[in-house]
Every structure is written in C-alpha cells, then in structure tokens.
C-alpha cells in the first residue's frame, strides 16, 4: 500500500491554495508550478504565485463510472477550468444545478474532500469549484 501522506503534504500549497508560478519574462502563469518556463527557457524568471480563485468552464463531463476511491461520489462533474490569469485546472464541479454547468460558466474555488478516504487513511482535501 502506497503511503500517500507525504505526497499529499508536498502538494498542499497547490491543492489548498492553487499555488503555481508565473514567468515574469513572458507573463505566463503556470499551474501546477513548473521547474522551468517552457517559453523562455533559461531566460525565464519564475516566481511563486497563488492563482486566482475564479475562472470559467472550458469543457466538462459527468463521470458515471468512477475510479477507485470515488465510488460513492459518482456521478460527479469534472471540468477543465480556465482561471482568470489563463492557467488551467482540472477539477470537480460541485453544488451546482446541472443546467448551470456549461462551457463559459463562471466558477469559484471551494475547499472540499477529494477522494473518499478509507476508514484509516488520511483524508485528502483540496480544490473543487462551484
């Protein structure tokens, strides 16, 4: 069994606060943060940055057959969201009326449980949108 606690911990800034980075040279935001700016290479200047909490839906789906750990959550909506600074995230969409989930719809980040934990493991928290 994989010990997921250290992996989750390492990603808390991303999962809790949407912390990514930004290249001051080409003005592009990256989420998750990148080790090197793919546009500017060594001329890039990456600085850590929290992404905006709002964005719009670029594409979405409703998942009926879930992977392990999500059995009791299905069906659920998944979407690709373009944040206000252009960075994109894939996230679940929760607490929204189905007719409001469409391409172009504005969404906002919320803090939720992600995978359903087993009875003994750590609980995974992170971003979802609504």
């Amino acid at each position: 069994m994989q010990n997921i606690a250290p992996l989750n911990w390492r990603r808390f800034p991303e999962r809790y606060l949407l912390r990514g980075n930004y290249c001051e040279n080409c003005k592009q935001a990256f989420f998750p943060p990148r080790a090197i700016c793919p546009n500017c290479r060594r001329k890039g200047k990456l600085v850590s940055m929290e992404m905006p909490r709002t964005g719009k839906i670029i594409s979405y789906t409703k998942v009926y057959v879930p992977p392990e750990g999500f059995k009791n959550e299905a069906p659920y909506y998944l979407a690709i969201i373009e944040l206000e600074n252009g960075a994109r995230v894939l996230s679940q969409i929760v607490d929204s009326e189905p007719e409001k989930i469409k391409i172009g719809a504005k969404v906002k980040k919320v803090f939720r449980r992600i995978a359903e934990p087993d009875k003994y493991g750590t609980i995974t928290y992170g971003y979802k949108f609504w």
Partner: peptide, 17 residues
C-alpha cells in the same frame, strides 16, 4: 497528481476533449 487525484478516468479525459 493533477488529473487522477481529482477523480478523472480515461473515458472522462476523452469526454472533455
């Protein structure tokens, strides 16, 4: 870390496309 963690499956990724 950023797709499957959030409940993405392969069909769902192609569904987004």
């Amino acid at each position: 870390e950023i797709e499957l963690f959030h409940g993405a499956t392969f069909p769902s990724l192609y569904a987004l496309l």
